[in-house]
Amino acid sequence: MPHRLNPFILATASKCIGCRACELACAAAHIEGGVSVGSLQAPLSPRLYLTCVGEMRVPVGCRHCEDAPCAAVCPNAAIYRTDRGVQVDESRCVGCKTCIVTCPVGAMEMGQIWENGKPVMRRVANDNSPEGSEMEPALLASKCDLCKDRAGGPACVEACPEQALALIYPDAIKRRRNIQAALALKGTGARAGEVL
């Protein structure tokens, strides 16, 4: 079947040990650098979030909603749907934060964007400065982009030592579950041909 629904990354809580390797890999995948933590040229800003509730640990991230509320509320059309998930165009983001409020799973954050080893800056009013304003690192909408430009696919999935994360295609899962359910049914009334 063709995939008509956006894939997304889902974690299995029972497998997650809470090591944050996914967050680390995610953050690293979205900034320039080499193979080591020290080589990364910007602060780490992960796009999925290890969440601890009691004994449970599980990373939570964007589901790439089909009717994405973040995209719907964005006043500047910075969030849009593509055939590779719901994506953010940081150049259009004005940092209004409405998307954070509206996301039902808490997948959106405001993060710094770094380009060429420097944070993207914005001008803010400051009466105390001589020019009446000053520059500070801009905080812009930041969320899972399914590592769209990464050759090996999503970094978090690759990094998880427990294989607790997977890029799932909901249509394929549905189809497989349908088949399993039908096969299971075969063992019920079908065996005896009885009428229940």
Binding site: A21, C22, L24, A25, A28, A29, V35, S36, V37, G38, S39, G152, A155, E158, A159, P161
Partner: peptide, 8 residues
């Protein structure tokens, strides 16, 4: 030594 990233 340098702390390698998870995917390395």
């Amino acid at each position: 030594q340098p702390k390698l990233l998870p995917h390395v």
